[in-house]
Design a binder for these strands. Structure first.
Lengths: 159, 159
DNA sequence: ATTACTGCAAAGCATTTGCAAATGC
DNA sequence: GCATTTGCAAATGCTTTGCAGTAAT
């Protein structure tokens, strides 16, 4: 399992170096195999910016020397989600969207109606209030998701 | 355009009586036609509890005397959304989920991992904090969505 | 050696669309 | 009467799956 890591941007290489061992541990605990295809997918995930959709990733890996088939990309993303390395977002599209969670603390999103841009924000108080609501209702929170739809500053200014 | 309204439960009949004229206005403003199929779909929407998916609704209307085809159900739901009579929720499934918004103020959801139940809650303070975050970022909020995933009280107790 | 994983292409499934027939205006 | 809407069935597009071959342990 050795793919070309020489020509990756510094930042990507570092993310992969941190994330890959975690994924390996996860796979070993699961008695799953550490394969080349899985490393290629993980590397590709960390080579992209925050948001991406499974199918685009699959398309990127459908040709070139680091080829991985569509089916395997989907299967690996599911494993990475299980391992806590990516998080699913499905609010704008019907398509599944993922983002890194590695080195990426919990946060919320605003999505611009005009340009489709995702803007991240977070607010400690909101998290606490949600926790309070859960306590009131006897609901045990695993995670939450907030999406705000509207117009971003740039698009608002353009008008 | 007359479908049987006699045997609808009182509550449903009342919702339909309030919502239908709004939809008619909406259609007229759009120079769209007021058709029997559209009334059947609207009635079916209000005959269901909060949450439903487009396809289930279509299935329900695929037989019987108030038959409406799948294509028309989807097309009508899109119109109802545009008219502000239903709201899209796409968080749990890849499937599109709708809920009434008519006589149903804005609220958030908790979704139980175990039983799939949707629990509604709302919190004025959270809304304000989100509004503040938007202001800080120059984002003009149109709407927002909060989904909390976890285990509901019943399922937690069962364990 | 054994068993899991991959690639491929085919199958699934919700949703959308094209077009002829039906319906509202 | 004319334009929109409907129904139907076929198409679409993302995702999943079956299976034979390949790679990891």
């Amino acid at each position: 399992m050795s793919i070309d890591e020489q020509d990756l941007p510094e930042e990507v290489r570092r993310s992969v170096e941190e994330a890959w061992p975690l994924f390996v541990d996860f796979l070993k605990k699961k008695d799953a195999r550490v394969t080349q295809a899985r490393k290629i997918v993980l590397t590709q995930v960390f080579s992209r910016h925050d948001h991406f959709c499974a199918d685009d990733l699959a398309a990127e890996l459908s040709s070139g020397m680091n080829h991985v088939s569509r089916g395997t990309v989907y299967r690996t993303l599911a494993l990475m989600e299980e391992a806590g390395l990516v998080r699913v977002i499905r609010d704008t599209d019907v398509h599944a969207h993922y983002e890194h969670t590695f080195n990426h603390p919990h946060h919320e999103h605003m999505i611009c109606d005009k340009c489709g841009q995702f803007i991240e924000f977070s607010d400690e108080q909101i998290m606490e209030l949600i926790a309070d609501s859960c306590k009131d209702l006897g609901f045990e929170e695993r995670t939450h998701r907030i999406v705000v739809f509207g117009t971003c500053a740039e698009c608002g200014a353009k008008k």
